[in-house]
Nucleic acid binder design. Structure first.
Lengths: 338, 338
DNA sequence: CTGAAAGCGCTTACAG
DNA sequence: CTGAAAGCGCTTACAG
């Protein structure tokens, strides 16, 4: 026998109190308002709605989920939620989900293939209706498999293969960065490029390098590194120790840029004056740093919102196109003429 | 009629293939291994387990949830996930939850009472088994109500009322900060105290102020502010504009401290030399800043893990005690002798 | 407009 | 050791 649940309000308890059948109550409470078709007579419907409201009825998702085969649950996989950019994207996703009565569950993959598979599996076990991946690797093998198995998902922040994605136009963003530094007069420039498996880093780098190359200028130095502060510091350390050290550094991520600022200080260089450094994403910190950081703004939360919208379209059977949101550059004190 | 689900593996499909009854399969697959009691003969059990494994059986939580009245879902409410400290706590919670086969859902309350109520309601509608609040307000009215209604929850990071919580010992942390600055010789000190409704800020401030008061020294200046960089900058701006400006500032949060560093620079002060600034939480950024930030380390992820453990105990009917984790101070270049 | 039935997948007390 | 039944709460095609 089932556990008696704590005097829970169910369709049945409402139906019984009103002397109606539970199916009638269900029809009314699920009735898309504004329809021509009515689920019950105006009077009956009103009585049902009033009582449901009064008792604080909340449909049990286990019941409806079991019956409909849909959970109204969306899984969101990210490299790590403690990466501010991903946290903000997730906030956008969750905000949009909440407005549609969807619930999100999230997990960190730490950009590790095995963890990615395991956590995806756990989300599928939870019967999510669809997934949003914020941790796509350019090597899209896992996603290809998942798609082949009928998995429904969209990517956010990073693109991969031909899977539908909502990203910023990172190539353009990288080009904006190059245009800015070149415009200031920087010719010897370097890129702290992030991880090679992430389209964000590689696209920004490609845009940046392309700009210099297209003008027949010396190719920028490119160094890969983790996306965090320590990674940026280590990469900048290497760059600044070279005899032909650059006059400007473009880090594909604000946190890496902050790390680079630390390395600059260690080398006795004043950022903005002796060395220009810029970041990417324009995190809330960038403007408030002791030396405000030039960065490229990306509509992070909006990216999350759109990814969720895209996913719901996909789940509704519509075809969805990838979206590329436009970045803009914000010049601050960390970059200046050489 | 129900939607035919995509050839899903169910207890029934396994039972049919093996010529067994679904209840037998259920008993075997739920059998706590290592029991003296066996759910089925060794041979039958082995066949069931082998087939389940082979087909990749994953129990449908809608079925078990409906039946047992438990969802194995935990709700986590935070002020905002884009606050790094909360993101790290959440990571700890989710990590521990995953190890126990629990799934977490999270939401931002933005420290807004109405949002807090709404999002809690949504989690309850999702039938979470229990809740973890990372956004407790010292005015614990809402939590008192929830507890009276039989809601099961623990608090994390911030304490409130007598509700079970897992926090750092913030009073001690504040005292450590005071001891450090006083030890360096700072007498004119100020506190950027955060929001008055959060125990983190008020406890750290109380510990700090208490240390100076206990020694008969002038009471530190105390200014409340938002916990973020912009808030810290604005508060420091005020402090540094005073004729009797302090020689050291204790910000109860690293991000506020970074904002204060910006304000110092605007005033032409070199942090560490002309003005000491310290933060709290020792976020990964602190050590990597151009001027490394003195801070108080708190085992953030561990706090999250323990909160989850506490909640599972509570849900199992055990009595749980509040926990206070010990903080330690990390001295860096941002604080020095006046 | 409303009722009655079926059944989604699961667990568990009961029989044998 | 295994089966059979009941029932958790819900939705939906079918009748009337």
């Amino acid at each position: 026998m089932a556990q008696p649940k704590a005097h829970q309000v169910t369709l049945r308890s409402i139906a019984d109190q009103l002397g109606l059948h539970v199916s009638t109550v269900s029809r009314v409470l699920n009735g898309r308002t504004g329809d021509g078709v009515r689920a019950a007579s105006g009077d009956t419907a009103a009585r049902i709605r009033r009582l449901a409201e009064e008792l604080g009825y909340q449909p049990d998702p286990h019941g409806s989920g079991l019956r409909t085969g849909r959970s109204r649950l969306v899984g969101v996989l990210v490299p790590r939620l403690s990466d501010l950019v991903l946290a903000m994207i997730y906030e956008g996703i969750d905000e949009a989900a909440g407005e549609l009565g969807l619930t999100t569950i999230t997990a960190n993959s730490r950009d590790d293939e095995q963890t990615r598979r395991l956590r995806t599996r756990m989300m599928l076990a939870r019967r999510v209706d669809g997934l949003i991946f914020g941790d796509a690797s350019l090597d899209s093998g896992f996603l290809d498999e998942l798609a082949a198995d009928g998995g429904k998902f969209v990517l956010v922040n990073r693109r991969a293969g031909d899977h539908p994605s909502v990203t910023a136009d990172d190539v353009t963003g990288g080009r904006l960065a190059a245009e800015h530094l070149h415009g200031l007069g920087h010719v010897d420039v370097a890129v702290i490029a992030g991880e090679p498996y992430a389209s964000t880093g590689t696209d920004r780098t490609a845009g940046f390098v392309g700009y210099y190359r297209d003008r027949g200028l010396a190719a920028p130095l490119v160094l890969h590194s983790p996306f965090d502060t320590a990674g940026g510091r280590a990469a900048a350390e290497k760059l600044l120790s070279r005899p032909d050290r650059p006059t400007a550094i473009f880090a594909v991520n604000d946190f890496a840029a902050i790390g680079a600022m630390g390395a600059a200080r260690d080398h006795g260089l004043t950022v903005g004056t002796d060395l220009s450094i810029m970041g990417y994403n324009d995190t809330p910190l960038a403007a408030e740093l002791p030396i405000p950081l030039t960065s490229v703004t990306v509509p992070t939360r909006e990216m999350g919102r759109r990814a969720l919208t895209s996913l719901t379209r996909l789940l509704a059977g519509e075809a969805v196109e990838s979206e590329r949101l436009a970045p803009t550059l914000v010049a601050r004190a960390s970059t200046a003429r050489p």
